[in-house]
Each structure stands twice: as structure tokens, then as C-alpha cells.
Simulated scan of single mutants.
Amino acid sequence: MPALWTHSEKLLLASLSATRLTLLVSAGLPVETQNSSIDERAVEEAAAHEGLDPPTLAGRLAAEKALAVSRRHPERVVLGADQVLECEGEVFHKPVDGAAARAQLMRLSGRRHALHSAGALAIGGQVVEHFLGSAHLTMRPLTEEAVDLYLDLAGPDVLKSVGVYQLEGFGVHLFETVEGDHSTILGLPLLPLLAALRRLGCLAL
């Protein structure tokens, strides 16, 4: 059987995200994972002082993750990825508990927000490719009762998502419209990634 992946080592994902891993494996890529262990809040604070906009912030976070792992494994092709949720100029973060998740959903209720998903590829401690995808989603106006029901149905996994929803599951009930590529919404713009890997000579197809 001919090989799709041409690099001598598997792609190294600088994240323990099960969703991103599933996207990569579904595309036929051989992948290993490793936590970047970067301080994301410190990166965000530094970016705020620099006045970075949300898409650029997503790119900075993705690059820092890729670089952290690439310095430990300079011979590998390392992928870093991150996602920033922006609503009317405000950047949202993953909720720390159920109460924060409830408050966040009420703030997004009836409003249109953007998901900026960025990726960076690093080799030898240097970023060699970077890419970005954005999607726009409009949430239905939600009652407090509807939010409570949704959180009960969706369970604690929603705390892993910056938007407090997983569109591939119960989260689909929250929306009026979704504009954008599905993989971008899930946190990894797959088509730009594959194009970048082809430019690096890592894919035969």
C-alpha cells in the first residue's frame, strides 16, 4: 500500500486535544501527541500589551505551542494549534466551572461570534509554516431554562471548549447559523494544514 506521509517521523501534535487528534487521524496522518506545557494566560497577557487582535493572538498561541515542543524534538515536524473566540471585540476563555459556563452561554445568546483557529508548523525550533481559519456562528436567543437543560445534557466535557459547546454533539441545538469550515470550528483548519504539509514535502498526495 503506498504511503501518504513521506517524513521519516510521525507528525508531532503539540497538544493533548482528542478532537484535533481525531481530525488528523481521520485524514490519514500518522500522529503522536505531546503537551506543550506553555502558560497560555501569560502569552495572552503579553499579547494584550502588544495590542494583538484575536486572529493574531490565536496565531501567537499556536506558534508558542509548536516552538515549545520543537525545541525538545528539533528533528520532528511539530504542529501547534489554538483557537480564540471573539464576540463583539471581547475574547472569551474556557470556563472554569458550570456556573462560568452558564454565564458565558447567556452572554453569547442571540449574538454572532467568531472562532479564529490558527496552526503553526515548526522544525528545528523555528516556525516554518503558519495558517489561520475563521468561522462565524450565530447563537439562538436562549432562555435560562434552555441553557440549564443544555448543560445537563452535554455534561462536563463542555468545559473543555472555549465556546461551551461541541458542535458535533448537543451544541448543534444552540445555533441559528454556522458559517465556516467544520474543521476550523473544531479548532484545526485542516485544508490549510494539508496545503502547508504539501509545501514542506511531507505528503505524497
Results as ranks from 00 to 15, higher is better:
residue 21 L to T: 12
residue 21 L to M: 09
residue 23 L to K: 11
residue 24 L to S: 02
residue 24 L to P: 04
residue 26 S to M: 12
residue 26 S to I: 01
residue 26 S to N: 15
residue 29 L to H: 04
residue 29 L to Y: 06
residue 30 P to V: 08
residue 31 V to T: 06
residue 32 E to L: 09
residue 34 Q to E: 15
residue 35 N to Y: 11
residue 35 N to F: 11
residue 38 I to C: 08
residue 38 I to N: 06
residue 39 D to C: 01
residue 40 E to W: 01
residue 41 R to Y: 12
residue 42 A to V: 09
residue 42 A to Q: 13
residue 42 A to N: 08
residue 43 V to D: 03
residue 45 E to N: 10
residue 47 A to D: 10
residue 47 A to Y: 12
residue 49 H to K: 14
residue 49 H to Q: 15
residue 50 E to R: 15
residue 50 E to H: 13
residue 51 G to Q: 15
residue 52 L to Y: 11
residue 54 P to M: 07
residue 55 P to I: 04
residue 56 T to I: 12
residue 58 A to S: 12
residue 60 R to Y: 12
residue 61 L to M: 03
residue 62 A to M: 03
residue 62 A to I: 02
residue 63 A to L: 04
residue 63 A to M: 11
residue 63 A to V: 07
residue 64 E to Q: 13
residue 64 E to P: 05
residue 64 E to N: 06
residue 64 E to C: 05
residue 66 A to M: 03
residue 67 L to E: 10
residue 68 A to S: 10
residue 69 V to S: 04
residue 69 V to P: 00
residue 69 V to C: 03
residue 70 S to M: 00
residue 72 R to H: 06
residue 72 R to D: 07
residue 73 H to C: 01
residue 73 H to P: 01
residue 74 P to Q: 11
residue 74 P to C: 04
residue 75 E to M: 11
residue 75 E to A: 14
residue 76 R to H: 10
residue 78 V to A: 05
residue 78 V to C: 02
residue 78 V to W: 08
residue 79 L to E: 08
residue 80 G to K: 00
residue 80 G to A: 07
residue 82 D to Q: 09
residue 82 D to S: 08
residue 85 L to H: 02
residue 85 L to S: 06
residue 86 E to Q: 14
residue 87 C to W: 15
residue 87 C to A: 10
residue 88 E to L: 05
residue 89 G to L: 13
residue 89 G to Y: 10
residue 90 E to R: 15
residue 90 E to P: 05
residue 90 E to L: 15
residue 91 V to M: 07
residue 92 F to E: 02
residue 93 H to Y: 13
residue 94 K to N: 04
residue 94 K to C: 03
residue 95 P to L: 06
residue 96 V to F: 11
residue 96 V to T: 14
residue 100 A to W: 05
residue 100 A to M: 03
residue 100 A to Y: 06
residue 103 A to G: 00
residue 103 A to V: 02
residue 103 A to N: 05
residue 105 L to Y: 00
residue 106 M to A: 14
residue 107 R to W: 15
residue 107 R to A: 14
residue 109 S to W: 13
residue 110 G to T: 01
residue 110 G to N: 08
residue 111 R to F: 01
residue 112 R to E: 12
residue 112 R to G: 01
residue 113 H to N: 06
residue 113 H to R: 06
residue 114 A to L: 13
residue 115 L to D: 08
residue 115 L to E: 07
residue 116 H to M: 10
residue 116 H to F: 09
residue 117 S to Q: 02
residue 118 A to S: 11
residue 119 G to I: 03
residue 119 G to S: 11
residue 119 G to H: 09
residue 121 L to M: 05
residue 122 A to N: 07
residue 124 G to F: 02
residue 124 G to N: 03
residue 124 G to A: 04
residue 124 G to M: 04
residue 124 G to Y: 05
residue 124 G to L: 02
residue 125 G to R: 00
residue 125 G to K: 00
residue 125 G to C: 02
residue 126 Q to D: 09
residue 127 V to M: 03
residue 127 V to K: 04
residue 128 V to W: 07
residue 128 V to Y: 00
residue 129 E to R: 09
residue 129 E to Y: 02
